[in-house]
Each structure stands twice: as C-alpha cells, then as structure tokens.
Design a binder for these strands. Structure first.
Lengths: 134, 134
DNA sequence: TTACAACCTCCAGTAACTGTAGAAGCAAGA
DNA sequence: TCTTGCTTCTACAGTTACTGGAGGTTGTAA
C-alpha cells in the first residue's frame, strides 16, 4: 500500500509517517520504480503500536525501547514494566502539580469582580506575590 | 544592577532574561560604557511578574496581555479575567485528560508480572489495541 | 490531453527556553 | 603590573514531536 493508505489506516498524517521513518522509528520501506514508498501489514502493526503508545503519552525514546522489547519476544519484559511504571509516576506527579496549580489559580481568578485594573485581584496577585514561583 | 543580580533576585537564568528581552517581553535596559546591561527595581518587578505568571502556566502571549493591562491601571480588567478564566478551563481539561490516561495506563501497567515479553501485559496491550488512540 | 490527487524532497516554524563557543570586561590578590 | 577567575557579551544550535508549505513529479480517470 502507499503512504496515504497507511496514514489513513492509522489515523496518522503522511508527514508524520515520513518523520517516523526519518528518526528511525519505522523501518525504511521498499519503493516503487518511481520512488514511492510501499508498505505492508507489518508496517500497519508497527505504526499502530507507535500511535497507540503515543496516545498513552510515551515519548519517542520510550517507544523505541518498547518496540525493541516487543520485537524480541523471548526477552524478559522487566524493562517494559520499568518504563511503564516510571511513566505512570510522571503522570501522577503532573496531575498533582496541575491540581495544586488549578486550586491556586482558581482562588484568585474567580475573585475578580471587574472594575479598573489597579484594583483587579488577578493583576494584583501576579504583582504582589514573591518573585518567581517555580 | 547587572544581569546576574537581576537573575538571582528572580530565580531566573541569565540566558532567560536575555531571551525575554529578545522577544520584547522585557524592555531593553540601559547599558554601561562597555555594553553591559544595567537594571533597576522596576525591572525586578516586571520580571517577577513574568516569572510568577509563568509559574501559573500562562503562556508568553498571555503574559504579554496581562502586563499590558497591569501597566495601564485605569483600564478595565475584564480582559485579564477572561485570560485567567480560559486558562483555568484549559488546566481543568488537562487534569481530566491526564486522569483518564492515568487510569487506563495503570490498568495494564500494573498487571505485568514479569516473564518473557511475548506474554507481557504491557507489550500486549500496546500491540493488541486498535490502531491509533488520539 | 488535461485535470487533479497523491506523492516526492527539503526546509522553516512551533513553545519556551537552555547550553555552548569564543571573545571581552572587571575586580582582587601576588 | 600581571594573572586568575568570574561575569558578561553576541550568536547560534539543540530540545520535543511533529506540522505545514514550496516547488516539482507521477499516476490515473474522464
């Protein structure tokens, strides 16, 4: 199949497929006489794996490792478990941070009752608070 | 004061201060005879505002608008309220998405009990599920 | 034959910095 | 005075994971 078919089957943009090839995440496909890429069902599976993993928020580098493990079925999957576990922890941390950020933001963002900027709660909070939050 | 002092006072990297100047977020400071930037307390306040806003997750463009409002105290702060409200909604959405992602990930990431990759729950889930999640 | 879609390569842009190279300035101590 | 070492300067490349576009070719259907 052509690149457009592969892209459609995996809900991926054509440019993105080429990008994955560029960075070595997908193997270089065979080409027709005129230079067009041709793909097989194996490519559909590989790309699906990639897209699915991206959907779970894994980075390209993590996906690289996961694919390697997936491609060598006899290997111990400890490494995969480690990647997934660390990723889970990263997401948990993000949720915690975002939640406390949301609470702080909410407490002043909702207290603005309009009027001139000099009395605005929002601008005030941004100006008043100590330098740099981090 | 010199750029290093400003950076220290606001917990910002020197390169980042210059970057903010480059993109017009901070005014171009006066220079010494030898070309070094010199800053005042006003710059400390401006940069603090920026850093603090970044801490709340506002984008550079949003901060640009917020600073403009902050600099014209007589203006109505409706625009600031709108920016903050929209930002709050963005964060709420992010939290919801991350949470559902976390739950999905958790359900298979924790079910891996080791062994060979061909029987691994994690690799299995990534391979098995339908093409592309989005 | 003439459209027109799909393909090709190459490159720039996104967000918000961070890091580095190479050169110059400045202050303090020997 | 010289040297050492820190700070500053400009300019540019790299980060992440794509996305979009320019300019050109190929394949196919009417």
């Amino acid at each position: 199949m052509m690149i457009g078919d592969l892209a459609r089957k995996t809900s991926t943009k054509v440019n993105t497929v080429r990008y994955y090839e560029d960075i070595g995440l997908l193997p270089k496909p065979a080409r027709t006489a005129s230079g067009r890429r041709t793909y097989t069902e194996s490519d559909v599976r590989k790309l699906s794996f990639v897209r699915h993993s991206r959907g779970f928020g894994f980075s390209i580098d993590e996906i690289r490792s996961l694919m390697e493990i997936s491609d060598s079925p006899k290997q111990d999957c400890e490494a995969a478990a480690k990647i997934a576990q660390e990723h889970l922890e990263k997401i948990d941390t993000q949720i915690i941070q975002l939640t406390s950020l949301r609470d702080a933001l909410k407490s002043f963002a909702t207290s603005c009752s309009g009027g001139s900027a000099e009395h605005c709660e929002i601008i005030g909070a941004l100006n008043r608070l100590n330098p740099a939050v981090d």
